[in-house]
Computed example of a mutant assay.
Amino acid sequence: MLKPAKILDPPVPDTTASGERYLPISMACLQPEYRAPCDLYLKTGGRGYLFFAKKGLDFGHSHRARLQERGVTHLYIRDEDSALYFDYLKETITEIVRNPACQSEQKAAVIHSACQDIMSRVIADPRASFINQAHEIITPTIDLIVSDDTATRHLIQLTAYDHYTYTHSTNVGIFGVALARLLYRPNDFRKIERMGAGFFLHDLGKCRVPIEILNKPGKLTPSEWSVMQRHPAEGFQMLEEAGFLTDEAQIITLQHHEKDDGTGYPNALDRDNIHPLARICRLADVYDAITSDRPYAKRKSTYEALKLMKEQIVADIDQELFEHFVKLFRN
């Protein structure tokens, strides 16, 4: 199957000494059938950028192969070209998802790369325009998951690679929508679409948590844990300020760390007061965390994670919902 490019270091936006701002884009999002949407640059080390391709270049397989041989996974664009790149990304993934001649495996790979790309941008710079862009990329993703069983299976398989915060958000979004499809299908696509943004953006508030706390290898101090527990409310506030706080996103963002026994946060809700949508997100969040390499724990296999969730993580998991979740991993 198609695998996403391996990311050795999470690419981040960068501002040069002269004040020019460059944004990373995944090479997997540049499709050989389309022309380059704007000027493309290579990072040369430090804060240097080398012009690579002019807007309108027929970015074909030979360009991609040459870069891959050099170990390049990301190119860069100027900040002022971000709108051009986003329009290109939205157009290409929409066309690919709707193209009946395109294989489900390719659709899944393109969608997964696009979601990672836009989520990395939102986490690094959560301005309202980027949240809007994320929402517009999430919509065709939800459409693909709801309409194509084979593509959904490929998306589930693609979640096994690379686990930075933005990848975790992408994975939880995919799991959340796929599970919601099992529970709500064939009723209301619009309902799944509204909740989908909440699944993908559930951890947006983590961009306000200091990186040393997010990546701390040991146990958090009480003061550090207090900071970490603020991220659901921070995410709620950011979505509200950006104008994307649907009822579904509000519930998911605020409640995805609540537990049935009342030991969750931020409001210590008990089982009877936790919304089903938050339960879906919590389940996806727990699974992706267990199957990821974290600063304090090595990743577990799918089998090990599901076994652990069924037998030991009782306070976090709705067991009836869990039985539906397991179906996502059956071929």
Rank of each mutant, 00 (worst) to 15 (best):
K216F: 05
F200S: 04
K191Y: 14
L179R: 06
R190E: 15
R190K: 13
V177E: 03
R208H: 12
N187L: 07
R181S: 11
A180I: 00
F175I: 10
H168Q: 13
C207I: 02
G198P: 05
R185H: 10
T165I: 04
P186E: 15
M195H: 02
L182R: 15
L220T: 05
V172N: 01
Y184K: 12
V177W: 02
T167D: 13
S169T: 12
N215P: 00
V209M: 06
L204H: 13
G218F: 02
G176W: 00
L182F: 11
I192D: 01
L214I: 14
R181M: 03
R190P: 00
H163Q: 10
I192C: 08
F199R: 09
Y164S: 14
M195E: 13
S169F: 00
H168A: 05
M195S: 14
V209Y: 04
R190H: 13
R208P: 00
R181N: 15
C207K: 04
R208S: 12
D203E: 13
F199I: 05
I213L: 09
K219E: 15
L201Q: 13
K219D: 13
G198R: 03
P210Y: 06
N187V: 01
R181C: 07
Y166H: 15
I213F: 00
H163R: 14
S169A: 15
D188N: 15
H202D: 07
D203A: 09
R190W: 04
V209E: 11
F175E: 07
G173L: 11
R181W: 04
N187M: 09
V177D: 08
K191F: 11
G176T: 10
A178Q: 06
H202Q: 15
L220G: 11
K219V: 12
I174E: 02
F189P: 01
F200L: 05
G218S: 09
D188H: 10
S169W: 00
E212R: 12
K191H: 11
P186L: 00
F199Y: 14
I211N: 13
G218P: 04
K191V: 07
L201G: 06
A178S: 15
P210K: 10
R185L: 04
S169M: 15
G173Y: 05
L179Y: 08
I211G: 06
I192K: 02
T167E: 13
L183V: 06
H202L: 02
A180W: 02
E193G: 02
I213N: 08
A180V: 00
K219S: 09
A180E: 15
F200P: 00
M195F: 04
L204T: 14
I174P: 01
